[in-house]
Design a protein around this nucleic acid. Sequence first.
DNA 1: GCCTGTGAATCCATTCACAGCT
DNA 2: AGCTGTGAATGGATTCACAGGC
Lengths: 220, 220
Amino acid sequence: MTHFPHSNGMEKQIKIPEATIDRIALYYRILEDLLAQGVQVISSQKFASVCRINPAQVRKDLSFFGEFGVRGVGYNVRDLLMEIKKILVSDREWKLGIVGLGNMGKALVRDENFFRRGYRFVAAFDSDPAKIGQEVVKDLFIRSMAEISLATDQLRIEIGVITTPPLHAQRVADLLMDAGIMAILNFSAIQVRKPDCCLVHNVDFTVNLDNLAYHLKKRS
Amino acid sequence: MTHFPHSNGMEKQIKIPEATIDRIALYYRILEDLLAQGVQVISSQKFASVCRINPAQVRKDLSFFGEFGVRGVGYNVRDLLMEIKKILVSDREWKLGIVGLGNMGKALVRDENFFRRGYRFVAAFDSDPAKIGQEVVKDLFIRSMAEISLATDQLRIEIGVITTPPLHAQRVADLLMDAGIMAILNFSAIQVRKPDCCLVHNVDFTVNLDNLAYHLKKRS
DNA sequence: GCCTGTGAATCCATTCACAGCT
DNA sequence: AGCTGTGAATGGATTCACAGGC
């Protein structure tokens, strides 16, 4: 939750809002587009209008991490992209292990967005004996659940992705955490119990739909 | 953003936090579990500990919509479930149309969670001529993009789901909005431009991964 | 005694507004 | 003149703490 701004070591720690991290990830994606379009320099004003947020928000978000702009000018798109890459630790690959190769699991490992952003599925596990040994995508063979512990260690898996039915999810999460994994992206519709040291993000699209439905109804 | 609490009409409008709506959706899922486990009554204290949030938060969230508990006792699980069902408008079906039947699109229409929560995919569209006519799931045949407008109207589609590549996403969103759709769940990695009247939720798992990666790094 | 419902207090995030640099 | 970086002000959301009811 805290950070040494400007990376020169000894200042007081500053709390960085969680929302800022997520927006920075968004900025990264939009800066990529701008660069592809040949934009070299952009003001917080213009950039914010592309992102559909407040210009001061952009400047404040970036200011948590350093001073990346030029007064009177704006931000160099390529440079800012590189800075954000460092902030988000997107300047290296992250190794993922996925458990549960049903429709959703398969869709995720085949989704090239993960690869493009530096996320590599290096292992896949399923409890269905019929699936074990299947090559779900080039060079990725489905392993048994019993292999989770060893493979996590040997392949240095850093983030676990759970796409099993809810009933198995807690057991799978425990296996992953026992194997030393500190971060989990959980697509199963349960709240995973976990120690404070482990990070878990839950993804449930039907919650998004409930939210949309609520607002649709309210407007009508 | 506003609501008439207790549903008797003429009180001043109260702003309901967006986060409250999302938590209410979470409560709904957890109450289903509790009911399945045979729990009949639960205090905000116990319920909050299951949800891993603050008890006052639970009570405050619910209080925006009415008084559902009994002082000195707690909340009746079945009754609260029914009340939340009404709040979230989960007491009826919602019709979805999906555009883009790649890996992710197919995984979504085959995911039984949507069905269980009352969300029905009633139409599927893709631009690939080879896919048109395919039965992607029982009774759901892929249509051409040209049919979006007519089908949306005839089938009374209420929410659009976009699972196309980013390049097509804006065009698809425009088609859906032109056809009168007021809510979109967008899985493509772009920020959709839209009028204020239309609701759009963006889903990008790689943003979740970026967030996890950031925190993993910071801790190490 | 126990637990809900809620105003008040606190905490956090966003936006304003301007000093400071180019 | 133009735009960043940031303290101060505002606006929201969460939590506290207790009055009120079972």
